[in-house]
Design a protein around this nucleic acid. Structure first.
Lengths: 248, 248
DNA sequence: GCAAAAGTGTTGTCCTTACACCCATGC
DNA sequence: GCATGGGTGTAAGGACAACACTTTTGC
């Protein structure tokens, strides 16, 4: 991490130690950093991502991710949570750093490096907070051209999500507190982009043993109503390690 | 990613579009960014990581990762490859972004955000280039206190490596061109930190079918010499998808 | 001939897959 | 009563884990 005034290869163990780290850091080229959130949601059996209209003339009409600059003394994670909170009103949501994008040409206004975070949130629980009508859920399969390199960022985060959901059952964050197994399966199918066998899916999740039967049933469905379940976080935490590698 | 002069919640679709993106970016707080490389190597049946003495007085005597500032118009990946090349003379080596570390207090000279990359390289092939005697291979299990937050970075990259090597057999990058199955198994055991069954290990790798028998044997070993193999990259590339999730 | 590691197969278990029928409800 | 999806079990195949003996070499 240390900046080397001369080529690193020319340094030796006799090189002078740097006394003033502050001067050193002040001499570094500095680059604006942003945090972008790829917020996944699930609605009408479709995986969606939350986007806003770009406010740059260059990208007029195009959609972009929710993001903001990282403040001078702000943790990266904190900046990402702040973006999430400002946009959705939520701060108790799962959020994970996925990748940093640093192409010098990715922003038309000059170099800006962005740290991409992915997040899953329940559309039903949060839709009331989203009043700004420039903010919309977009089907992940129908993303048109986006501002900046945001399409590439979404793609990367989508691949991350597909992998992640097979290692940890975090899909629950996208569902209402009580959900039917059909909803859960729809979610997995939407994320993985492939149909799954219903019986095997149910077997697998029951075997994981963190679904709690809440003793209620679906309402207003034009067929036999399914049982509703909720997620037992305690059981999940206890057995976590065992599911590294859930295949469908 | 767009910077919002006012709170995002107050923006509406009638908000003015930003005409001058350059002005906008110029108004952002800027932060120095470095690229740090966690370079893993394998020698004497031990997983090692390449470190250098810190050149900061504050960290006198402590070891730190190989890193350098990211230049104003340099790709992050390019900076990481440059660090690797400057330190080891290699530029044909596997390198992957792992995570970005942005704690405001991680550098004593002021805020510096670092993008951590992990890399695997063959100690035998590259040892000649390492002339600087402040550069040393350290056993991953015996890392003492390190400069900055570099211990945390190494830990994160180590976890990444353990996971990665079970998905893709990139351990070959750490071995000589021709290697015995025992060497390969030693490598996997060193990385995963656990013993593996020899017969099952061999079965698994033969089943993957990218080991080519080069028709040679080990020399100068005080026991029956093992066959030497090399890695068939073409076969690997063709069958890649099948090994997402190699368990030991 | 002894020490040390190479090399090799089988078996039981578990997990995954594929697959078909009855059930409860709304209309 | 019919359409719709809910709910269930089994059998076959494949992957994994456990495990012991013979072979080859250096000394």
């Amino acid at each position: 991490m240390e900046y080397l005034a001369t080529s690193p290869l020319l340094r030796s163990k006799n090189a002078q130690l740097i006394e003033d780290a502050v001067d050193l850091v002040a001499s570094y080229p500095a680059i604006p950093i942003t945090a972008d959130c790829v917020i996944f949601g699930f609605e009408e059996n479709q995986l969606k991502v939350l986007l806003i209209r770009s406010d740059l003339v260059q990208y007029k009409g195009l959609w972009s991710l929710l993001g903001d600059i990282v403040y001078a003394n702000e943790e990266l994670d904190t900046a990402a949570y702040r973006v999430l909170r400002q946009r959705t009103g939520m701060d108790d949501v799962f959020l994970e750093q996925v990748k940093t994008f640093g192409c010098p040409e990715r922003h038309p206004g000059g170099r800006v490096v962005t740290v991409a975070y992915a997040s899953l949130l329940n559309i039903q629980h949060h839709q009331l907070k989203i009043l700004d009508n420039e903010l919309h859920w977009h089907n992940i399969d129908h993303l048109t051209d986006m501002a900046f390199d945001h399409k590439a960022i979404v793609d990367e985060c989508y691949r991350w999500l597909q992998k992640r959901i097979q290692e940890h059952p975090l899909g629950f964050n996208l569902l209402p507190e009580k959900f039917s197994l059909r909803e859960l399966q729809n979610l997995y199918e939407a994320i993985l982009g492939q149909p799954l066998d219903r019986r095997n899916f149910r077997k697998k999740f029951f075997a994981m043993d963190f679904l709690v039967d809440v003793g209620e049933y679906e309402h207003d469905v034009p067929h036999r109503p399914g049982k509703l379940y909720k997620f037992d976080f305690d059981k999940y935490e206890k057995n976590k390690r065992k599911w590294i590698g859930i295949d469908f």
